[in-house]
Design a protein around this nucleic acid. Structure first.
Length: 863
DNA sequence: GAGCACTGC
C-alpha cells in the first residue's frame, strides 16, 4: 500500500462532523446511501474518507464533465498532490488518470463504457455514484448493473449519494437478501433559509364571488420584481421555460424601464460571450440589481453567482418520448416539487433569500414530487443496444429502480431491427455489434456503417458528429439576422445535411490557414461557438478512430451528395415523409401555414422554419430528427426523390430485415415483413399474412398482433353486412369502456382513441401472395370502400397521462365467437388485482372526440 | 414560422 498524504477535513463542512459515522457505515456495509444537500461537502470528502479506510481504488462518477474535472482538481489540491497522480479524472476526450491513481473522478458514461471490457469492474474496490438523484439513463443503468454485480463482488463497496430527495428509494433498491434496506446517512447542507411566497397568476375570487381576473406571466414577473425592490438589495434569478418566454419577459421588463436594473438572459443557445456576462459581477454605474432570466440551465449546470431572490415561473420544457408518434416531444410542463425546491434553493447560496412562486400553494402541493427519471421519458434503443452488447439477458428481468414502459422497450427493439442490428432470435447481428462500438445514437451509427459502401465515410462522419453535438451556430439576441446571413453562406438549398458538411469543410480549411487565436476570432465573427466547434472536431476525431477500428477508414474527401444521402437514409428509414398534397393545397389557400408531410405511421410534420428547405417544399424529405414543440417539426432535412427513396428503402429494408422470422401455422405462412407504402404510411414494419389460414387461427393471431403491435390488420369490417346492428354494439362498447374508466379513475380513456377495431374475416384473395400484391389489393380495396377501417388503435389508454395504478396495455386477451376479453392488470400494491373488459364481437368503431376523422359506422355522425 | 438540459474508447 502506498504512503498516504496527510488527510485533513475542512472543519466548516457539515460532512466533516459526520466523518466517523460515515466511515463506520462504509466499513460495516457493502452499500451506503449518503443524502446531503448542497454545500454538505459530501462530494469532495467521501473519497478521502474511503482512502483513509484503506480503499485502494476508488471510482467516483459525476453526471457532467465539468464537475468531474473540477472536483478532481479540488480533491487533489486538498490532499496536496499533483492532479493525475493519486487523484485523477477521465472524461470523454481527456484522461488524466495513471497507474498511481487511487481516486478517479469520471463521468458516469465513462464507467458505463468500462463495463464493455471489464464486466466485473475489477479495477475498482469502491464505487461512488454521485448525484444519483439526477436519474439519468446512465445512472439508472449503473444502479441496476451494480445491484446484480454486488453478490459476485463481495469486496466491492458502493456509495450512492443523492440530494435529500427520496434517498429511501435507493436504500430499498440495494436492500440485502433478507430485505434490510441499505443504511441512509443524512448530512445537513450549508445553505441559508429561503422564504417561499406564493403569488399565483390567477387572482383570488373577489368579494362578490366572481370576476376571476388572470394576470399574465409577465405581469406576474413585474409584480414580483416590484415586491422584491422593497427588500434588501440583491440579484434576482427568474426561471422560465425557454427562449421565447425569456425574450418576451425581457421586452416587458425593459418596457417598464425599471431604474437601476440590468436584465440578462441565460439559456443554452446563447453565445459564449452572452453567457459569460452572468459571471461578471462588476456593475455599470447606477446599476443596483441584476435580473437574470434563465431556463433550466440555471437549475442544474450553471450556478449564477450572487443570487438572493428567485422568481419561479413554474414551468419548463421537458423532453418526453411520445409512445404513439415515436417522436421526441418538448412540451412545456409544470415542474415537479423537487425541481421547484431546487430553484428556490438558488436564493439561499450566500445568504437568506426569498423565492416568489408564480403559482399557488395548492398548485405546488398537487404537483408530482419528482421529475420522471429519464428512463421513463426517452427512446430506449441505445440502452437496449448496450444491454444486448453486454449480454445482460431479458430486459424485463433487469433490476431497474423503475422499469421502463414495455411499449418503449418494444419500440426500441423495433428501431434496432429497422437498423439491421438484430438477428432473427433477437440477439445482436454483426451490424449491431459494430453499432455498439460507436458512442452515438444508433441511427447515426448505422449511417456511418453504410457510408463505407458509398465511399463517403469522411463526409458522413463529419455530418454525424455535427448532429451529435449542440449546434455551434449562434444566434445572439441583437444580431439574429446578421448571424442567419452568415450561416446562410453554407446553405445547400436541397439538404441541411450538406449545409452542415459545407460548414465543416469551411472550418477545416480555415483552421489550416489560420493561427489558433485567429481561428477563434473567425468563429466569433461568423457567429460560431468556438467551444462547440472544438467539440465537433473532437467527436469527429473520436468517431474516425473508432470507425477505423471496425473497418471503416475515413478516406479522402469526395463530392458525392447522392452517396451521402444514400448513407444517411440507412439510418432514417422511418423518418421519411412525402408531401401531403391535400394540406399543401389548403396551405396555399390560407397562405400561412407551412406544407405538411406524411411520415411513417401516418404522422404529419412540417419542415423546421430555420431549414433551407422550409420555403420551397420538395415532394419528399428525410429528416434526422422529429421534434414536437408547438407542432411536429423535422429538423435537419434533405429533399429526396420519391422513386429514388422507395427503391433505396426497399433495398435497405431487405438488408436490414435480412433474416425474416417465419412461422408455419396450420398450413399457412406467417411472415414478419416490411411494407413500404409511399403515399400512405411509408416504411414501417408489420406482419403480413401471406395466404389463407383457418379463420379461427387468423382471428387469434390477428387479434394478438393487433393488440401487441397497435396495428389493426387491414382486414374486413362488417360495414356492408345489413344484419349487423352497429348502434347496439357501439353502445355496448362505450358502456364497457365507461366502466373501465370509472374503475381506473380515468376520465379520458376513450378520448384519445379513434376508431377501434373492425371484425375481420381473413379473406385476402387467394391470388395475393406477395407484399407488393397485398399492397395493390389493399389500396384498391380502400378506394372501393373508403369507409373501411384503415387503422385501429388498441391502446385504449392515453399515453401521456400518468396512470400509476394500471398497466397501460391489456396483459392478456381471449376471444371466442362472441366476445373479446381484455385483461388490464393493476400494478403491484393496488387493492385490486386488475380489471377485465369484455367487448362483443364482431365489433365496431367509435370516436367520441369531435372533429375526429375516424370513420364510425355506428355513430350518430355517420347517419 | 421557431428551440429544456446533459452525456459516450
Amino acid at each position: 500500500m502506498s504512503v498516504l498524504p496527510r488527510i485533513s477535513y475542512p472543519p466548516e463542512l457539515p460532512v466533516s462532523a459526520a466523518r466517523d459515522e460515515i466511515a463506520d457505515a462504509i466499513r460495516d456495509h457493502q452499500v451506503v446511501i449518503v443524502a446531503g444537500a448542497t454545500g454538505s461537502g459530501k462530494t469532495t470528502q467521501l473519497p478521502k474518507i474511503c482512502l483513509e479506510l484503506g480503499r485502494e481504488s476508488i471510482g467516483h462518477t459525476q453526471p457532467r464533465r465539468i464537475a468531474a474535472r473540477t472536483i478532481a482538481e479540488r480533491i487533489a489540491e486538498e490532499v496536496g498532490v499533483e492532479l493525475g497522480d493519486l487523484v485523477g479524472y477521465q472524461v470523454r476526450f481527456t484522461d488524466k488518470a495513471s497507474a498511481a491513481t487511487r481516486i478517479k473522478l469520471m463521468t458516469d458514461g465513462i464507467l458505463l463504457n468500462e463495463l464493455s471490457h471489464d464486466r466485473m469492474l475489477s479495477r475498482y474496490d469502491t464505487i461512488i455514484l454521485d448525484e444519483a438523484h439526477e436519474r439519468s439513463l446512465t445512472i439508472d443503468f449503473l444502479l441496476g448493473y451494480l445491484k446484480r454485480l454486488l453478490p459476485r463482488r463481495p469486496d466491492l463497496k458502493v456509495i450512492v449519494t443523492s440530494a435529500t430527495i427520496d434517498p429511501e428509494s435507493f436504500a430499498r433498491h440495494f436492500a440485502s437478501a433478507d430485505g434490510t434496506p441499505a443504511p441512509v446517512l443524512e448530512v445537513s447542507g450549508r445553505t441559508y433559509p429561503v422564504e417561499i411566497r406564493y403569488r399565483p397568476l390567477v387572482a383570488e375570487v373577489d368579494e362578490e364571488g366572481e370576476g376571476r381576473e388572470d394576470r399574465d406571466l409577465f405581469d406576474g414577473i413585474l409584480a414580483g420584481l416590484d415586491e422584491l425592490a422593497g427588500e434588501a438589495p440583491g440579484d434576482v434569478l427568474v426561471f422560465l421555460s425557454g427562449e421565447n418566454e425569456i425574450r418576451d419577459a425581457e421586452d416587458a421588463i425593459r418596457a417598464r424601464n425599471l431604474p437601476g436594473t440590468e436584465v440578462l438572459p441565460l439559456y443554452g443557445r446563447l453565445s459564449a460571450a452572452e453567457q459569460h456576462r452572468i459571471f461578471d459581477t462588476s456593475r455599470a454605474p447606477g446599476i443596483r440589481r441584476r435580473v437574470v432570466l434563465a431556463t433550466n440551465v440555471a437549475e442544474t449546470s450553471i450556478t449564477v453567482p450572487g443570487i438572493k431572490y428567485v422568481v419561479d415561473g413554474g414551468t419548463a420544457r421537458i423532453s418526453r418520448y411520445g409512445a404513439r408518434s415515436k417522436v421526441q416531444r418538448l412540451p412545456i410542463e409544470p415542474v415537479s416539487q423537487a425541481s421547484a425546491n431546487q430553484r428556490a434553493g438558488r436564493a439561499g447560496r450566500t445568504s437568506d433569500g426569498i423565492a416568489i412562486r408564480l403559482y399557488s400553494e395548492e398548485d405546488y402541493e398537487k404537483r408530482p414530487a419528482y421529475t420522471d427519471p429519464e428512463i421513463l421519458r426517452t427512446g430506449l434503443s441505445a440502452v437496449l443496444l448496450q444491454m444486448l452488447d453486454l449480454d445482460l439477458g431479458d430486459i424485463a428481468d433487469f433490476p431497474f429502480l423503475q422499469p421502463p414502459d414495455p411499449r418503449g422497450i418494444r419500440d426500441g427493439r423495433e428501431l434496432l431491427r429497422e437498423l439491421g442490428a438484430l438477428t432473427a432470435d433477437g440477439g445482436l447481428s454483426r451490424t449491431g455489434r459494430d453499432l455498439a462500438r460507436l458512442p452515438i445514437d444508433p441511427r447515426f451509427g448505422r449511417m456511418v456503417l453504410e457510408s463505407k459502401r458509398n465511399g463517403v465515410a469522411r463526409e458522413v462522419l463529419a455530418i454525424v458528429a455535427g448532429l451529435s453535438i449542440q449546434d455551434p451556430r449562434e444566434r445572439p439576441l441583437e444580431k439574429r439576422e446578421q448571424a442567419d446571413q452568415s450561416h446562410a453562406r453554407f446553405a445547400d438549398p436541397t439538404s441541411d445535411f450538406l449545409s452542415l458538411l459545407n460548414l465543416w469543410n469551411h472550418l477545416e480549411q480555415r483552421q489550416k490557414e489560420l493561427s489558433s487565436s485567429a481561428f477563434r476570432r473567425l468563429c466569433r465573427a461568423e457567429f460560431l461557438n468556438y467551444l462547440r466547434v472544438r467539440e465537433w472536431q473532437d467527436v469527429y476525431r473520436q468517431l474516425e478512430r473508432l470507425a477505423r477500428r471496425i473497418g471503416i477508414p475515413a478516406g479522402e474527401p469526395k463530392v458525392d451528395p447522392d452517396g451521402i444521402h444514400r448513407s444517411l437514409l440507412s439510418g432514417l428509414l422511418s423518418q421519411i415523409g412525402v408531401l401531403d398534397q391535400r394540406s399543401a393545397a389548403s396551405g396555399r389557400d390560407k397562405g400561412r401555414r407551412s406544407a405538411e408531410f406524411v411520415g411513417a405511421r401516418g404522422v404529419k410534420f412540417a419542415v423546421f422554419p430555420g431549414s433551407a428547405l422550409a420555403k420551397r417544399p420538395p415532394s419528399a424529405v428525410m429528416a434526422a430528427e422529429l421534434v414536437e414543440t408547438s407542432r411536429l417539426f423535422a429538423r435537419t432535412v434533405a429533399a429526396i426523390d420519391v422513386a429514388w427513396a422507395e427503391r433505396l428503402a426497399g433495398d435497405l429494408v431487405k438488408r436490414n430485415y435480412a433474416e425474416p422470422h417465419w412461422e408455419a401455422k396450420q398450413g399457412a405462412a406467417v411472415g414478419f415483413e416490411t411494407v413500404t407504402l409511399f403515399g400512405v404510411p411509408l416504411v414501417t414494419r408489420r406482419r403480413v399474412q401471406w395466404s389463407r389460414v383457418e379463420p379461427a387461427v387468423a382471428r387469434e393471431m390477428l387479434l394478438q398482433h393487433a393488440l401487441v403491435d397497435q396495428e389493426w390488420p387491414p382486414h374486413l369490417d362488417r360495414s356492408r353486412d345489413p344484419a349487423f346492428d352497429f348502434e347496439r354494439a357501439n353502445t355496448r362498447l362505450l358502456r364497457e369502456l365507461g366502466e373501465l374508466e370509472e374503475r381506473t379513475r380515468r376520465r379520458d380513456i376513450l378520448s384519445g382513441s379513434e376508431a377501434v377495431l373492425g371484425f375481420f374475416d381473413a379473406r385476402i384473395p387467394a391470388d395475393v401472395t406477395t407484399v407488393r400484391g397485398f399492397e395493390t389489393w389493399w389500396n384498391a380495396a380502400r378506394k372501393e370502400a373508403p369507409s373501411l377501417l384503415t387503422l385501429g388503435r388498441t391502446d385504449v389508454l392515453e399515453e401521456d397521462e400518468d396512470v400509476p395504478d394500471v398497466q397501460q396495455f391489456p396483459t392478456t386477451w381471449h376471444t371466442d365467437d362472441q366476445r373479446l376479453s381484455l385483461r388490464y392488470r393493476f400494478e403491484p400494491g393496488a387493492e385490486d388485482d386488475g380489471v377485465t373488459v369484455e367487448v362483443p364481437l364482431p365489433l365496431l368503431l367509435a370516436s367520441p372526440r369531435p372533429g375526429s376523422t375516424g370513420w364510425c359506422p355506428g355513430s350518430a355522425r355517420s347517419s
